[in-house]
């Protein structure tokens, strides 16, 4: 979390709160982007894609490697062009990886016994994590800080509310891509096919929709958004590690469940909520227990409110 000034006596409380709000929204947009991948896959094939968090980590590594490749080997100096290339390349390559994963590890299991896809996804998660560890080493990979300038919004002296350029970039890119994505799902034949498969894949197949292809595209779209999150994560924290996928993955899944699994706006709302809760919990209670808070929310929501905030209650058919 960027900037945690100590609390002054009575003054600066509003500024501190506003600062945490900005930090929380930034973190929340990253979680929201990952959560969409979980929620879409669950909506369409009813499976928790356990490897999605690790895919996010892999995309972050791809972004790191593309960044280094573009700046040191190709020699582009403009940060804007570099980041655009990094984002697009990471989205493309991560989508390709998830396409291969879906085709080889999940598709053969459709119609198999009910735990099989989840176990396969857990295996895939271990595979991705350890592949990165073996291929790129276990150490943290730091990147020189970029976009460090800040804009002061309010306050003076020690109590300022500042928003850094990278926070602006993260929130802006997230909002832009969500708009594009929203258009894709709501206004194109592709999105219509997707929503049809979500409601009843057998009926959709009877009406001439290629269900396998639609599921593939769902995985590709989820991966592309995870890659955006991975790139933003790298820009925000400037460091990535092979084990970084697990905890953000669980938190994003929590966000998807909190928002109502299967619901796209729910995933974004849930992501923002989790980001805000985590930031405020660290700011006002204890930073050590912030992950405990996230995991507890997950358990409590799943047990007492499985339909989430915006989801539909699940009706079980026999």
């Amino acid at each position: 979390m960027a900037g945690q000034p100590s609390l002054g006596q009575g003054q600066g409380i509003v500024e501190y709160f506003a600062q945490q709000l900005i930090n929380g929204v930034t973190l929340g947009s990253i979680y929201g982007l990952i959560a969409i991948g979980y929620t879409m896959v669950f909506g369409i094939i009813g499976m928790v894609n356990f490897a999605h968090g690790d895919l996010f980590m892999v995309s972050s590594f791809i972004a790191l490697l593309v960044f280094l490749f573009v700046t040191t080997i190709v020699g582009i100096t403009s940060l804007f062009i570099t980041l655009t290339i990094v984002l697009l390349a990471s989205m493309f390559l991560t989508s390709l990886i998830n396409w291969v994963i879906e085709k080889s590890a999940y598709r053969p299991l459709r119609g198999s016994f009910r735990l099989a896809p989840l176990i396969s996804a857990i295996g895939m998660s271990i595979l991705l994590m350890n592949f990165i560890q073996v291929a790129q080493g276990a150490r943290n990979k730091p990147l020189a800080p970029m976009l460090t300038d800040v804009i002061k919004i309010a306050g003076e002296g020690n109590f300022v509310v500042a928003i850094s350029y990278k926070q602006i970039v993260i929130v802006a890119v997230t909002a832009l891509l969500l708009a594009v994505f929203w258009y894709l799902v709501q206004r194109t034949p592709l999105g219509r096919a997707q929503r049809a498969c979500e409601q009843d894949s057998r009926m959709a197949a009877l009406l001439g929709i290629n269900v396998d292809r639609t599921i593939s595209i769902t995985f590709v779209m989820g991966a592309a958004l995870a890659a955006v999150a991975g790139t933003m994560y790298l820009v925000y924290y400037g460091v990535v590690n092979f084990a970084d996928g697990f905890v953000p993955g669980v938190k994003a899944f929590t966000a998807a469940v909190l928002g109502g699994i299967g619901s796209l706006p729910g995933a974004v709302v849930g992501g923002l909520l989790i980001g805000l809760i985590e930031t405020f919990w660290s700011a006002y209670f204890s930073i050590e227990y912030k992950d405990v808070a996230a995991f507890s929310i997950l358990a409590v929501v799943l047990i007492f409110m499985p339909q989430g905030l915006l989801g539909k209650p699940e009706v079980e058919k026999v």
Binding site: L109, S112, F113, I119, S120, G123, L127, N130, V134
Partner: peptide, 21 residues
């Protein structure tokens, strides 16, 4: 042993495809 977890992950996926039980 460095590759143990990697092989374990591959094994889990392959076993699920080949013999889900």
């Amino acid at each position: 042993t460095k590759y143990r977890m990697l092989i374990l992950g591959i094994g889990m996926v392959l076993i699920m495809i080949w013999k889900p039980r």
